[in-house]
Amino acid sequence: METVKTLDVSDIYMLVTGIVLGTAARLLTLKVDMRQIPSYPSAYFNNIIHGFIAASLGAIAIPALAAQDFTAVTFLTLAVTQFREARTSEQESLSKLEHTEYAGRGKAYIDGIAKTFESRFYISLLTALVSVLVMKVTGMNSIPQSIALGVVSGGIVIYLCYRFTKGRTVGQIFDVAPGKIEVRGSELYVDDMFVTNYLGTDRSRALFEKEGLAVVITPRTAASRMTLENYGQRQAILFEAVRALGVKRYKFMRRHFASGKVLIAFVPIFRDENRLLSAVKKTPILENSRKIQRIMKISFGGRHG
Protein backbone atom coordinates (compact mmCIF):
# COMPACT_ATOMS: atom_id res chain seq x y z
CA MET A 1 0.00 0.00 0.00
CA GLU A 2 3.03 2.21 0.61
CA THR A 3 3.77 2.14 -3.10
CA VAL A 4 0.30 3.21 -4.11
CA LYS A 5 0.58 6.28 -1.95
CA THR A 6 3.70 7.43 -3.74
CA LEU A 7 2.09 7.24 -7.20
CA ASP A 8 1.49 10.65 -8.72
CA VAL A 9 -0.44 11.73 -11.81
CA SER A 10 2.50 11.05 -14.13
CA ASP A 11 2.69 7.47 -12.86
CA ILE A 12 -1.03 6.99 -13.38
CA TYR A 13 -0.98 7.88 -17.09
CA MET A 14 2.14 5.79 -17.57
CA LEU A 15 0.44 2.85 -15.95
CA VAL A 16 -2.71 3.30 -18.00
CA THR A 17 -0.69 3.63 -21.21
CA GLY A 18 1.30 0.52 -20.37
CA ILE A 19 -1.79 -1.51 -19.50
CA VAL A 20 -3.62 -0.39 -22.64
CA LEU A 21 -0.61 -1.20 -24.84
CA GLY A 22 -0.03 -4.56 -23.16
CA THR A 23 -3.67 -5.53 -23.57
CA ALA A 24 -3.58 -4.30 -27.15
CA ALA A 25 -0.55 -6.54 -27.71
CA ARG A 26 -2.60 -9.56 -26.66
CA LEU A 27 -5.50 -8.44 -28.84
CA LEU A 28 -3.25 -7.98 -31.88
CA THR A 29 -1.71 -11.42 -31.45
CA LEU A 30 -5.08 -13.04 -30.83
CA LYS A 31 -6.37 -14.51 -34.05
CA VAL A 32 -9.64 -16.27 -34.48
CA ASP A 33 -9.45 -18.07 -37.75
CA MET A 34 -10.38 -21.42 -39.24
CA ARG A 35 -8.33 -23.20 -36.61
CA GLN A 36 -10.74 -21.90 -33.95
CA ILE A 37 -8.05 -21.70 -31.30
CA PRO A 38 -8.81 -20.03 -28.97
CA SER A 39 -12.45 -20.93 -29.27
CA TYR A 40 -14.82 -18.02 -29.62
CA PRO A 41 -16.16 -16.29 -27.54
CA SER A 42 -15.27 -17.84 -24.15
CA ALA A 43 -11.58 -18.72 -24.58
CA TYR A 44 -11.14 -15.52 -26.64
CA PHE A 45 -12.44 -13.47 -23.75
CA ASN A 46 -10.31 -15.39 -21.23
CA ASN A 47 -7.21 -14.58 -23.25
CA ILE A 48 -8.01 -10.87 -23.32
CA ILE A 49 -8.45 -10.85 -19.54
CA HIS A 50 -5.20 -12.77 -19.10
CA GLY A 51 -3.51 -10.26 -21.40
CA PHE A 52 -4.90 -7.41 -19.32
CA ILE A 53 -3.53 -8.98 -16.11
CA ALA A 54 -0.15 -9.59 -17.76
CA ALA A 55 -0.05 -5.98 -18.96
CA SER A 56 -0.98 -4.71 -15.50
CA LEU A 57 1.84 -6.68 -13.88
CA GLY A 58 4.31 -5.39 -16.47
CA ALA A 59 3.15 -1.78 -16.17
CA ILE A 60 3.25 -1.71 -12.37
CA ALA A 61 6.79 -3.12 -12.10
CA ILE A 62 8.71 0.02 -13.16
CA PRO A 63 6.88 2.65 -11.03
CA ALA A 64 7.06 0.25 -8.07
CA LEU A 65 10.81 -0.20 -8.50
CA ALA A 66 11.21 3.55 -8.95
CA ALA A 67 9.47 3.98 -5.61
CA GLN A 68 12.13 1.64 -4.19
CA ASP A 69 9.58 -1.07 -3.62
CA PHE A 70 11.83 -3.96 -4.57
CA THR A 71 9.19 -6.52 -3.70
CA ALA A 72 7.77 -5.49 -7.09
CA VAL A 73 10.09 -8.10 -8.58
CA THR A 74 7.83 -10.70 -6.98
CA PHE A 75 5.10 -9.41 -9.30
CA LEU A 76 7.11 -10.69 -12.23
CA THR A 77 7.67 -14.09 -10.69
CA LEU A 78 3.95 -14.17 -9.99
CA ALA A 79 3.37 -13.41 -13.66
CA VAL A 80 5.66 -16.23 -14.77
CA THR A 81 3.80 -18.67 -12.50
CA GLN A 82 0.47 -17.44 -13.78
CA PHE A 83 1.50 -17.81 -17.44
CA ARG A 84 2.85 -21.28 -16.84
CA GLU A 85 -0.44 -22.13 -15.21
CA ALA A 86 -2.27 -20.82 -18.28
CA ARG A 87 -0.11 -23.06 -20.48
CA THR A 88 -0.78 -26.11 -18.31
CA SER A 89 -4.52 -25.51 -18.18
CA GLU A 90 -4.62 -25.07 -21.97
CA GLN A 91 -2.73 -28.34 -22.39
CA GLU A 92 -5.09 -30.15 -20.03
CA SER A 93 -8.16 -28.70 -21.69
CA LEU A 94 -7.07 -29.65 -25.21
CA SER A 95 -5.89 -33.11 -24.08
CA LYS A 96 -9.29 -33.82 -22.56
CA LEU A 97 -10.96 -32.89 -25.83
CA GLU A 98 -8.76 -35.19 -27.93
CA HIS A 99 -11.30 -38.00 -28.12
CA THR A 100 -14.09 -35.69 -29.20
CA GLU A 101 -12.39 -34.55 -32.42
CA TYR A 102 -12.42 -36.15 -35.88
CA ALA A 103 -8.72 -36.76 -35.44
CA GLY A 104 -6.55 -36.05 -32.43
CA ARG A 105 -4.31 -33.00 -32.44
CA GLY A 106 -1.54 -35.01 -30.87
CA LYS A 107 0.67 -34.10 -27.94
CA ALA A 108 3.15 -32.14 -30.05
CA TYR A 109 0.50 -29.84 -31.51
CA ILE A 110 -1.15 -29.31 -28.11
CA ASP A 111 2.24 -28.47 -26.62
CA GLY A 112 2.87 -25.97 -29.43
CA ILE A 113 -0.51 -24.26 -28.98
CA ALA A 114 -0.06 -24.01 -25.21
CA LYS A 115 3.48 -22.62 -25.57
CA THR A 116 2.24 -20.03 -28.06
CA PHE A 117 -0.45 -18.91 -25.64
CA GLU A 118 2.14 -18.57 -22.88
CA SER A 119 4.53 -16.59 -25.08
CA ARG A 120 1.75 -14.17 -26.06
CA PHE A 121 1.25 -13.29 -22.39
CA TYR A 122 4.95 -12.50 -22.12
CA ILE A 123 4.55 -10.21 -25.12
CA SER A 124 1.79 -8.37 -23.23
CA LEU A 125 3.94 -8.09 -20.14
CA LEU A 126 7.05 -6.95 -22.01
CA THR A 127 5.11 -4.42 -24.06
CA ALA A 128 3.66 -2.81 -20.93
CA LEU A 129 6.98 -2.98 -19.08
CA VAL A 130 9.10 -1.47 -21.87
CA SER A 131 6.64 1.28 -22.75
CA VAL A 132 6.38 2.37 -19.09
CA LEU A 133 10.17 2.12 -18.73
CA VAL A 134 10.75 4.33 -21.78
CA MET A 135 8.23 6.89 -20.55
CA LYS A 136 9.76 6.86 -17.08
CA VAL A 137 13.38 7.11 -18.24
CA THR A 138 12.79 9.92 -20.73
CA GLY A 139 10.74 11.81 -18.12
CA MET A 140 9.05 14.12 -20.59
CA ASN A 141 6.98 16.92 -19.11
CA SER A 142 4.47 16.87 -21.93
CA ILE A 143 1.95 14.09 -21.28
CA PRO A 144 0.85 13.64 -24.94
CA GLN A 145 4.49 13.42 -26.06
CA SER A 146 5.29 10.93 -23.34
CA ILE A 147 2.28 8.79 -24.25
CA ALA A 148 3.25 8.96 -27.93
CA LEU A 149 6.75 7.76 -27.04
CA GLY A 150 5.26 4.95 -24.98
CA VAL A 151 3.02 3.92 -27.87
CA VAL A 152 5.95 3.90 -30.31
CA SER A 153 8.19 1.88 -28.00
CA GLY A 154 5.33 -0.51 -27.20
CA GLY A 155 4.63 -0.91 -30.91
CA ILE A 156 8.27 -1.77 -31.57
CA VAL A 157 8.24 -4.38 -28.78
CA ILE A 158 5.03 -5.95 -30.13
CA TYR A 159 6.47 -6.08 -33.65
CA LEU A 160 9.81 -7.55 -32.60
CA CYS A 161 8.35 -10.11 -30.18
CA TYR A 162 5.64 -11.18 -32.61
CA ARG A 163 8.15 -11.55 -35.40
CA PHE A 164 10.49 -13.56 -33.20
CA THR A 165 7.81 -15.92 -31.91
CA LYS A 166 5.86 -16.26 -35.15
CA GLY A 167 6.39 -19.67 -36.66
CA ARG A 168 6.12 -20.82 -40.24
CA THR A 169 3.34 -22.73 -41.92
CA VAL A 170 3.14 -25.90 -43.99
CA GLY A 171 2.46 -23.92 -47.18
CA GLN A 172 5.74 -22.03 -46.77
CA ILE A 173 8.05 -25.02 -46.76
CA PHE A 174 6.10 -27.78 -48.54
CA ASP A 175 4.29 -28.03 -51.83
CA VAL A 176 0.64 -28.80 -51.20
CA ALA A 177 -1.50 -30.04 -54.08
CA PRO A 178 -4.77 -31.89 -54.56
CA GLY A 179 -4.36 -35.63 -55.12
CA LYS A 180 -6.09 -37.78 -57.73
CA ILE A 181 -8.06 -40.58 -56.10
CA GLU A 182 -8.14 -44.00 -57.68
CA VAL A 183 -9.72 -47.18 -56.31
CA ARG A 184 -8.30 -50.48 -57.48
CA GLY A 185 -10.21 -53.36 -55.94
CA SER A 186 -10.10 -52.73 -52.21
CA GLU A 187 -6.99 -50.57 -52.56
CA LEU A 188 -6.95 -46.80 -52.53
CA TYR A 189 -4.30 -44.90 -54.49
CA VAL A 190 -3.62 -41.18 -54.53
CA ASP A 191 -1.53 -39.93 -57.47
CA ASP A 192 -0.62 -43.58 -58.12
CA MET A 193 0.72 -44.03 -54.57
CA PHE A 194 -0.74 -46.66 -52.28
CA VAL A 195 -2.71 -45.36 -49.32
CA THR A 196 -4.75 -48.24 -47.89
CA ASN A 197 -6.52 -51.48 -48.70
CA TYR A 198 -9.36 -50.91 -46.27
CA LEU A 199 -11.96 -50.38 -48.99
CA GLY A 200 -13.27 -53.93 -48.75
CA THR A 201 -16.86 -53.30 -49.74
CA ASP A 202 -18.44 -51.95 -52.92
CA ARG A 203 -20.16 -49.27 -50.87
CA SER A 204 -16.89 -47.92 -49.45
CA ARG A 205 -15.26 -47.93 -52.90
CA ALA A 206 -18.17 -46.05 -54.45
CA LEU A 207 -18.20 -43.57 -51.58
CA PHE A 208 -14.51 -42.80 -51.95
CA GLU A 209 -14.67 -42.53 -55.73
CA LYS A 210 -17.63 -40.18 -55.57
CA GLU A 211 -16.96 -38.06 -52.51
CA GLY A 212 -13.37 -38.65 -51.42
CA LEU A 213 -10.79 -35.87 -51.26
CA ALA A 214 -7.03 -36.21 -51.14
CA VAL A 215 -4.09 -33.91 -50.67
CA VAL A 216 -0.42 -34.54 -51.40
CA ILE A 217 2.27 -32.77 -49.39
CA THR A 218 5.73 -32.74 -50.94
CA PRO A 219 8.85 -31.58 -49.08
CA ARG A 220 11.04 -29.17 -51.03
CA THR A 221 14.32 -30.02 -49.34
CA ALA A 222 15.86 -32.79 -47.24
CA ALA A 223 15.53 -30.64 -44.11
CA SER A 224 11.87 -30.01 -44.77
CA ARG A 225 11.37 -33.75 -45.32
CA MET A 226 12.71 -34.34 -41.82
CA THR A 227 10.08 -31.93 -40.55
CA LEU A 228 7.31 -33.61 -42.52
CA GLU A 229 8.34 -37.08 -41.37
CA ASN A 230 7.87 -36.00 -37.77
CA TYR A 231 4.82 -37.85 -36.50
CA GLY A 232 3.55 -34.92 -34.44
CA GLN A 233 3.73 -32.65 -37.48
CA ARG A 234 1.83 -35.08 -39.69
CA GLN A 235 -0.78 -35.54 -37.01
CA ALA A 236 -1.25 -31.76 -36.80
CA ILE A 237 -1.71 -31.57 -40.58
CA LEU A 238 -4.26 -34.40 -40.56
CA PHE A 239 -6.09 -32.73 -37.69
CA GLU A 240 -6.37 -29.40 -39.51
CA ALA A 241 -7.39 -31.05 -42.77
CA VAL A 242 -10.23 -33.08 -41.31
CA ARG A 243 -11.30 -30.36 -38.92
CA ALA A 244 -11.77 -27.86 -41.73
CA LEU A 245 -14.12 -30.09 -43.71
CA GLY A 246 -15.39 -32.66 -41.22
CA VAL A 247 -15.24 -36.40 -41.78
CA LYS A 248 -18.17 -38.33 -43.16
CA ARG A 249 -16.25 -41.61 -43.28
CA TYR A 250 -12.67 -42.80 -43.33
CA LYS A 251 -9.50 -40.80 -42.93
CA PHE A 252 -6.11 -42.01 -43.99
CA MET A 253 -2.63 -40.59 -43.82
CA ARG A 254 0.27 -42.31 -45.47
CA ARG A 255 3.94 -41.63 -46.00
CA HIS A 256 5.40 -42.50 -49.38
CA PHE A 257 8.90 -43.62 -48.49
CA ALA A 258 10.44 -43.33 -51.93
CA SER A 259 9.48 -39.71 -52.55
CA GLY A 260 9.00 -38.43 -48.99
CA LYS A 261 5.49 -37.30 -49.84
CA VAL A 262 2.68 -37.45 -47.34
CA LEU A 263 -0.78 -38.35 -48.52
CA ILE A 264 -4.02 -37.53 -46.76
CA ALA A 265 -7.31 -38.97 -48.01
CA PHE A 266 -10.77 -38.93 -46.45
CA VAL A 267 -14.45 -38.57 -47.19
CA PRO A 268 -15.38 -35.07 -45.99
CA ILE A 269 -18.71 -33.59 -44.95
CA PHE A 270 -18.04 -30.39 -46.94
CA ARG A 271 -16.49 -31.30 -50.23
CA ASP A 272 -14.40 -28.19 -50.80
CA GLU A 273 -10.95 -28.78 -52.27
CA ASN A 274 -9.76 -25.19 -51.91
CA ARG A 275 -10.70 -25.13 -48.26
CA LEU A 276 -8.78 -28.35 -47.72
CA LEU A 277 -5.66 -26.98 -49.40
CA SER A 278 -5.93 -23.77 -47.42
CA ALA A 279 -6.31 -25.65 -44.10
CA VAL A 280 -3.27 -27.80 -44.82
CA LYS A 281 -1.16 -24.85 -45.97
CA LYS A 282 -2.02 -22.82 -42.88
CA THR A 283 -1.12 -25.60 -40.44
CA PRO A 284 1.72 -24.29 -38.30
CA ILE A 285 5.12 -25.93 -38.38
CA LEU A 286 5.60 -27.26 -34.88
CA GLU A 287 8.67 -26.07 -33.04
CA ASN A 288 9.75 -29.58 -32.09
CA SER A 289 9.55 -30.80 -35.68
CA ARG A 290 11.24 -27.79 -37.22
CA LYS A 291 14.77 -28.29 -38.49
CA ILE A 292 16.70 -25.08 -38.85
CA GLN A 293 19.76 -25.56 -41.04
CA ARG A 294 21.65 -22.73 -39.36
CA ILE A 295 21.28 -24.37 -35.95
CA MET A 296 21.85 -27.90 -37.24
CA LYS A 297 25.24 -26.84 -38.56
CA ILE A 298 26.43 -25.71 -35.14
CA SER A 299 28.71 -28.22 -33.52
CA PHE A 300 28.04 -28.33 -29.81
CA GLY A 301 30.89 -29.09 -27.44
CA GLY A 302 33.76 -29.32 -29.90
CA ARG A 303 34.51 -30.92 -33.23
CA HIS A 304 32.82 -34.17 -32.50
CA GLY A 305 29.80 -32.51 -30.88
Partner: peptide, 20 residues
Protein backbone atom coordinates in the same frame (compact mmCIF):
# COMPACT_ATOMS: atom_id res chain seq x y z
CA UNK B 1 -20.28 -62.67 -48.34
CA UNK B 2 -20.59 -58.93 -49.02
CA UNK B 3 -23.71 -58.55 -46.94
CA UNK B 4 -22.36 -60.55 -44.01
CA UNK B 5 -19.05 -58.74 -43.89
CA UNK B 6 -20.78 -55.35 -44.14
CA UNK B 7 -23.13 -56.17 -41.29
CA UNK B 8 -20.33 -57.52 -39.13
CA UNK B 9 -18.18 -54.52 -39.94
CA UNK B 10 -20.92 -52.16 -38.81
CA UNK B 11 -21.68 -54.12 -35.66
CA UNK B 12 -18.04 -54.44 -34.63
CA UNK B 13 -17.01 -51.00 -35.95
CA UNK B 14 -14.21 -52.64 -37.87
CA UNK B 15 -12.50 -52.05 -41.19
CA UNK B 16 -13.07 -54.42 -44.09
CA UNK B 17 -10.27 -55.58 -46.34
CA UNK B 18 -10.78 -57.70 -49.40
CA UNK B 19 -7.76 -59.76 -50.31
CA UNK B 20 -6.81 -60.33 -53.94
Amino acid sequence: QQETITELGRALRADIVQLK
